[in-house]
């Protein structure tokens, strides 16, 4: 536990002294909420009172940005070790892989919560939208997205560990690749059949279907969230297994010991 705390402390030291690390924690999500807030306000103006776009689109944007922050929280903490070539110092120590991954997750918890609070404040103050007004279900939504964000963050980190620092450009667009299938801003039924099949194995699709149902007052069974939660837990376990597999490969081949862009790309 103390070694996990050491990873969190390291991240705290880095963030504390660096505006370039603090600002991205909330700046981009605030810009995103502003953008979606004004879009929804415009859509409400042209569409009339038939449908309130604010909770549907802005709510989705808040949740999706939270998910993205969680994933990037994990990968950013991992990238700090990539950029400072710190793997040899870390992995030649008593630090275990599970302690290290727990440190990445804890760092992500903190940074994603900062982003979430910033988003909620902007959404309430500027657009009068409070996602927490939907009650305890929102916590379930956030938890499920958090788990899936952790899973993708760990997978992204494993990809960079295996392929080298240059592969970080594979990691940044992962949320964008997932979003069309997850039905963030439209019902999954809008998708072609094959994409709907993909959506059924993506935990976020259950969240956004649920959000739309709650907002529009359509019938929706909260129990479907359990499917999403089960999938998210499986995804986290698979992600940890995948990272462990890549790590063992790196130890077997000497990748950890000579990790740099030049040696692995």
């Amino acid at each position: 536990m103390i070694r996990t705390f050491a990873i969190l402390l390291r991240q705290y030291y880095l963030v504390r002294g660096s505006a370039s690390r603090v600002i991205p924690m909330f700046a981009w999500v605030v810009v995103d909420i502003l953008l979606w807030g004004f879009i929804t306000r415009y859509l409400n103006a042209v569409a009339g009172p038939r449908l309130d776009f604010v909770p549907v689109l802005l709510g989705a944007a808040v949740l999706w940005d939270f998910f993205t922050r969680v994933m990037h929280g994990v990968t950013m903490t991992f990238f700090e070790d990539v950029w400072s070539r710190n793997f040899l110092n870390l992995f030649a120590s008593p630090l275990s892989l599970s302690e290290y991954l727990a440190g990445l997750v804890l760092s992500s918890v903190v940074t994603s919560l900062v982003g979430l609070v910033a988003m909620l404040i902007v959404a309430v103050v500027l657009f009068g939208f409070s996602i927490v007004s939907y009650g305890v279900t929102v916590i379930a939504f956030l938890l499920l997205l958090f788990l899936f964000g952790i899973a993708l963050g760990i997978v992204g980190s494993a990809i960079v560990l295996r392929l080298g620092p240059a592969a970080e450009w594979f990691v940044w667009p992962i949320p964008a690749l997932v979003s069309p299938f997850a039905g963030v801003f439209y019902p999954v039924s809008t998708l072609p059949t094959w994409m709907q099949y993909v959506a059924t194995v993506l935990p976020p699709s259950y969240v956004f279907e649920g959000l739309r149902a709650i907002v529009s007052g359509a019938p929706w069974s909260p129990s479907t969230l359990w499917i999403g939660a089960a999938l998210a837990i499986v995804d986290v376990l698979l992600a940890c297994w995948f990272f462990g597999w890549v790590y063992r490969y790196a130890v077997r081949t000497g990748l950890i010991a000579r990790y740099s862009a030049e040696t692995v790309s």
Partner: peptide, 12 residues
């Protein structure tokens, strides 16, 4: 100092 503290924690 920060480096020493982080690695000191890691080494218990």
């Amino acid at each position: 100092e920060q480096n020493l503290r982080v690695f000191g924690l890691i080494y218990g």
